[in-house]
Simulated scan of single mutants.
Amino acid sequence: MDKTTQERAKMSGIVPNRNQILTLGDLVEFKEDMLREVKRVMRECASGAPGKKWLKSAEVKKLLGISHGFLQSLRDSGVLPFTKIGGSIYYDYEDITFMMSANKSA
């Protein structure tokens, strides 16, 4: 590489500088972060619970396997509480689980 190419590569981050060199500690920390995240995703999948408190309409429809119209009727009838911010509608995951439990038949 000529000097200009080396300078451009260094500026774009391709050529590592002393602040970009990985240490064994960095790799161990990265591994632990990845394992924690994989475990969290696995727990979430096993429990069926999403990893967040507030869900958008598309997420609720997918979670419950319902259509847009049925979700609309749950909102309109007051069965499923929601919060509207701007043009987005959000549902509390706890409200969804409560609705499902309250309507469970024996």
Rank of each mutant, 00 (worst) to 15 (best):
M1Q: 00
K3W: 12
T4Y: 01
T4H: 06
T5E: 05
T5N: 08
T5P: 10
Q6G: 00
Q6F: 15
K10Q: 09
K10P: 00
K10W: 07
G13F: 02
I14V: 12
I14C: 05
N17H: 08
R18E: 14
R18Q: 14
N19W: 14
Q20P: 01
I21N: 01
L22I: 08
L22M: 13
T23F: 00
L24P: 05
L24A: 11
G25L: 03
G25M: 05
L27K: 13
V28P: 00
F30E: 13
E32V: 06
D33I: 02
M34K: 12
L35T: 06
R36T: 07
V38T: 07
V38A: 11
K39T: 13
R43I: 06
C45H: 12
C45Y: 13
A46C: 03
S47H: 02
P50M: 07
G51H: 00
K52V: 10
W54L: 13
L55D: 11
L55S: 05
K56N: 12
S57D: 05
S57L: 03
S57W: 04
S57Y: 04
A58Q: 15
A58Y: 15
K62A: 09
K62P: 05
L63Y: 08
L64C: 03
L64E: 03
G65W: 12
S67M: 02
S67W: 01
G69P: 07
L71V: 08
Q72D: 13
Q72L: 09
S73A: 05
R75P: 01
D76S: 10
G78P: 01
V79T: 09
V79L: 06
V79D: 05
T83D: 12
I85E: 07
I89R: 06
I89T: 10
Y90R: 13
Y90V: 13
Y91G: 08
D92I: 02
E94K: 05
I96H: 04
T97V: 14
M99I: 07
M100K: 10
M100F: 03
S101M: 15
S101C: 10
K104D: 07
K104E: 13
A106F: 14
A106Q: 09
